[in-house]
Design a protein around this nucleic acid. Structure first.
Lengths: 230, 230
DNA sequence: GAGTGGTCTAGACCACTGG
DNA sequence: CAGTGGTCTAGACCACTCG
């Protein structure tokens, strides 16, 4: 009768939330009681409830107790894959082409790269990733050479700066944003779509502590979808 | 000298990855050894390493050991907030307006709602959420009345079906996708933007086990960005 | 078969927070 | 101050997976 593993406890708790034994906003029994009821250690219950709290299904507060979240703040975990891997996983042939690589003390682009100051010593790179020869995504990137110092002679002719950076420059944290925009004329040519067609964009900046390592703007082909599950 | 809490262990491990004591792809010492070195229990090390594996920083395999991820599969956790809450958190005044509510055995929209079959008994709802009176997002939703049976007389005049569903119909899982599209003429009027302007869309379907509860398409105002951190 | 991570237990103490 | 979750420990056994 005993539920003596944390996944079992989690399932049982979810069941009770689902069949409304415990209703949204209500407080559920404390860990000790549940442990007694299930016939397992408190730590096991703790593990299960903590996992559910991480998912946003439960709210936990010391002294108060554990409540069923009123509005389960849907938390979706997006995996941001390597572009190469994403394409290969679709069973397509991946290819990469460098378009531009310039020293640019001052980003002269239409966009102003988030978190970068114009005084930084920046390397600008533009490249395109293709799937079975069809344009997939344009990578437009600034690299902060104050932080990334070992790339002087490095040329990203054959390999995406994305992969090189991931493997060679560890980061502490990052900021990322998703948006839609009307494609610029220049990029629409590269992506082989009509100008001002709607395109999906990802803007990502990674940091080493306080310093920006790199900022990248990914402009995807038409109809690109970022998918995940809840 | 001992590191006797799991956050401390995590920090130390991250430090070593960061300063390349442990390089990408390399195997790190086993839990037992680390526990001995840090002077703490193995479970504590386990907790720290497990958390890092969840984040995608480490790869763990039984018998083999723990390795530093070659390409840290950036995992971003998106919080999908309640629209009302999202607007209120910006310090704006939230308002909601129902536009349409029809029984529709057959979705006659341009889009084909993912995961729904046309034979289902569907309720279609269209509504708009505003921020300080400015259009924020259009909610366009199908509800499966085979599953959600207690809403006969329910009218979503004042309240978003989103909130009602969250509080009243528990779900087991969901699928979600993000994309960009050129705004339809009809919607552009509602959002007060130019036709065919690029807009950000979220398509979400929630399930109760195998059955679809609801599918919603959210079409955001121009310039909307979904942000998160790594 | 053997080595690694995965988990459980029982008991203990800590940390936050509401009254 | 008291009650709740948060965490740690030491030891044990299990589960997966490689050779």
């Amino acid at each position: 009768m005993a539920i003596n593993n944390w996944l079992g406890v989690q399932t049982e708790v979810l069941k009770r939330i689902h069949d409304r034994t415990w209703k949204p906003g209500e407080i559920i029994p404390r860990e000790t009681d549940l442990a007694y009821e299930f016939g397992c250690a408190r730590v096991t219950v703790n593990r299960a409830l903590r996992a559910l709290a991480d998912k946003g299904v439960l709210d936990r507060k010391r002294k108060v107790g554990t409540t069923v979240a009123l509005y389960p703040t849907s938390k979706a975990t997006l995996k941001i894959p390597l572009i190469r891997k994403e394409i290969e996983d679709l069973g397509k042939v991946y290819s990469y082409k460098l378009l531009k690589q310039t020293q640019s003390k001052f980003p002269k682009e239409e966009r102003l790269p988030t978190h970068l100051s114009s005084s930084d010593n920046l390397l600008y790179i533009e490249a395109i990733h293709s799937s079975d020869g069809e344009p997939f995504v344009i990578e437009s990137r600034y690299i902060n050479q104050k932080v990334v110092t070992n790339l002087e002679s490095k040329v990203f002719e054959k390999n995406s700066p994305n992969e090189w950076l991931l493997a060679n420059v560890p980061y502490t944290h990052g900021a990322i944003s998703f948006s839609a925009t009307n494609c610029s004329a220049e990029k629409s040519t590269l992506l082989k779509i009509n100008p001002s067609e709607a395109v999906f964009q990802i803007d990502r900046t990674t940091f080493d502590r306080e310093q920006v390592i790199t900022n990248v703007l990914l402009t995807y082909h038409k109809d690109y979808q970022l998918q995940t599950s809840l």
